[in-house]
C-alpha cells in the first residue's frame, strides 16, 4: 500500500511536502495559542478597563494582569520558530 502510494513521487516532492507539513504545524501552533491568549485576555481586559475606570491607580497592576496570558501565544511562537528553523 505505502509503496504504491509513493510511486511517482520524486525525493524533491517528498521534501517539499515535509516543508509544507512543518509550515502547517507552525501555523497551528501560533494560531491556536493566539486564539487561546485572546480568549483569556478578553475577560481580563474588560475587567481591567472596568477597574481602571473605578480607580486609576490600579492601571499598572491591571496592565500586568492583562498581558499575563500573552505567555501562551509566545510559547506557540517559540514552537513555531523552532519547527521552521
Amino acid at each position: 500500500m505505502v509503496g504504491e502510494e509513493l510511486v511517482g513521487l520524486t525525493p524533491e516532492m517528498i521534501e517539499a511536502s515535509q516543508a509544507g507539513m512543518k509550515a502547517i504545524g507552525a501555523a497551528i501552533a501560533v494560531g491556536s495559542t493566539g486564539l487561546a491568549s485572546a480568549a483569556a485576555e478578553m475577560a481580563i481586559g474588560s475587567a481591567a478597563v472596568g477597574a481602571t475606570a473605578e480607580n486609576k491607580d490600579v492601571f499598572g497592576l491591571v496592565l500586568l494582569l492583562t498581558v499575563i496570558p500573552e505567555t501562551i501565544v509566545i510559547f506557540g511562537l517559540v514552537v513555531a520558530l523552532l519547527l521552521i528553523f
Partner: peptide, 12 residues
C-alpha cells in the same frame, strides 16, 4: 522559558 519572548517578539 518566558524569556523566550525576547526572541519571539523580536524576530516577529
Amino acid at each position: 522559558l518566558s524569556y523566550a519572548r525576547l526572541v519571539g517578539v523580536g524576530v516577529s
